[in-house]
C-alpha cells in the first residue's frame, strides 16, 4: 500500500466527516464532491481506471451537479442552515454513533479475520469489464436501462407542477 492510498483515504474520510457535520447544504455538497474525487483516486489505485473516470464523470459530474442545481432551484437560504443547526443537537449523535461504532467494529473485525489468499492488487482492464457487461450481464444491462427509463418517467411525472394534485392524505392540511 503506498502513500497515495493513505492520503486519498484520509481525504475521503475527512471530507465525508465534513459532509456529515456541515449545516450549510452547499458546503456539504462540495465536500461530498471532494470525497467522491478521492474515492475515484482509490479506484484508480485498485486497478479500475475506467470506473474512476465514471465516478468523476457521472457521480461527481452529473449526479452531484444535479443536486446542486436542485438546491439552487429550491433557493434554500441561510434560514435552512440555521434550522439545520437547530436540528443537529449534540444529544442526537449519541445513540446512532454508538450503534454505528459497534457496526464498524464488527465490519473491521470481519475484514481483518478473513483468510483470503494474498494476491495484492490485480488491475482489471475496462475491456474485460465490457466483455463481461455485454456477455453474462447483458440481461442486467437491459434491466438497468429499464430502471433509468422508469427514473426519467418517474422524475418527469413527479416533478410536474401543472396543477396542484393533492393526495387525499394531505388534503386536510393543504391551506
Amino acid at each position: 500500500m503506498d502513500l497515495t492510498f493513505y492520503i486519498a483515504a484520509a481525504i475521503a474520510v475527512f471530507s465525508t466527516v465534513m459532509v456529515v457535520t456541515r449545516f450549510n447544504i452547499m458546503h456539504a455538497l462540495l465536500y461530498l464532491i471532494v470525497s467522491l474525487l478521492s474515492v475515484a483516486v482509490i479506484f484508480y489505485l485498485y486497478g479500475a481506471p475506467f470506473m474512476a473516470a465514471l465516478e468523476i464523470i457521472i457521480y461527481a459530474g452529473a449526479i452531484m451537479v444535479l443536486i446542486i442545481f436542485f438546491v439552487m432551484m429550491l433557493n434554500l437560504g441561510p434560514e435552512t442552515a440555521r434550522q439545520e443547526k437547530e436540528w443537529l443537537r449534540p444529544g442526537m449523535w449519541l445513540l446512532p454513533a454508538l450503534l454505528c461504532a459497534v457496526l464498524l467494529g464488527e465490519l473491521v473485525y470481519l475484514i481483518a479475520q478473513s483468510k483470503t489468499p494474498v494476491t495484492g492488487i490485480t488491475p482489471v482492464p475496462p475491456k474485460e469489464v465490457g466483455r463481461s457487461l455485454f456477455g453474462p450481464y447483458i440481461l442486467a444491462v437491459e434491466l438497468s436501462a429499464l430502471l433509468l427509463m422508469a427514473g426519467i418517467v418517474g422524475a418527469y411525472h413527479l416533478g410536474r407542477q401543472k396543477k396542484k394534485i393533492l393526495h387525499r392524505f394531505f388534503e386536510s392540511n393543504a391551506s
Binding site: A62, L66, I67, F70, A155, Y156, L158, G159
Partner: peptide, 9 residues
C-alpha cells in the same frame, strides 16, 4: 442516478 432523479422529484 435513477434514485437521485426520482428522489429529488
Amino acid at each position: 442516478a435513477a434514485e437521485v432523479s426520482v428522489g429529488l422529484a
